[in-house]
Write a protein that binds this DNA or RNA. Structure first.
Length: 120
DNA sequence: GCGCCCGTCGCGG
DNA sequence: CCGCGACGGGCGC
């Protein structure tokens, strides 16, 4: 179920049921191209929810093959976690895809894909 | 119900 | 570069 509503002067999409929100998150994550990343926050803004919830959804993602959740990182460029497999594994996956990390292990600004842009 | 958990963010110092 | 408060909703008791 999807609900469109007015929040202040903004129109946002809401998913009253947590499971539906997760499904929407998974769909968006699949749009991230190989070799690029996006942040929990950007997905959250697009769906009208909070970054923490997006993270929770991803942490429960079982279909690691179809949903590349390793391409979702902190808005600061830090990698964030990767469930039971650990951040090290996440780092390796990104390296395999050619994502550059700086000296402090952060993703550079130009590796971020704009989901909004991808959707138009 | 309440408290605690979570793979966050953005602002202020 | 921290520290901190707010964020939404599931889950166990």
């Amino acid at each position: 179920m999807l609900v469109i509503e007015k929040r202040g002067d903004r129109i946002v999409a809401r998913f009253p049921k947590y499971r539906d929100l997760c499904l929407a998150v998974y769909v968006l994550v699949q749009l991230i191209p190989l070799g690029r990343v996006t942040s929990y926050g950007e997905i959250a803004r697009l769906l009208g929810t909070s970054p923490r919830l997006v993270a929770k959804c991803l942490s429960e993602n079982k279909d690691l093959v179809v949903v590349p959740c390793h391409r979702v990182v902190y808005s600061t460029g830090d990698l964030g976690g990767y469930g039971g497999l650990g951040p090290e594994f996440k780092k390796k996956l990104l390296a395999l895809e050619g994502v550059e990390l700086d000296g402090r292990g952060r993703v550079s600004r130009n590796s971020f894909a704009s989901l909004k842009w991808l959707l138009e």
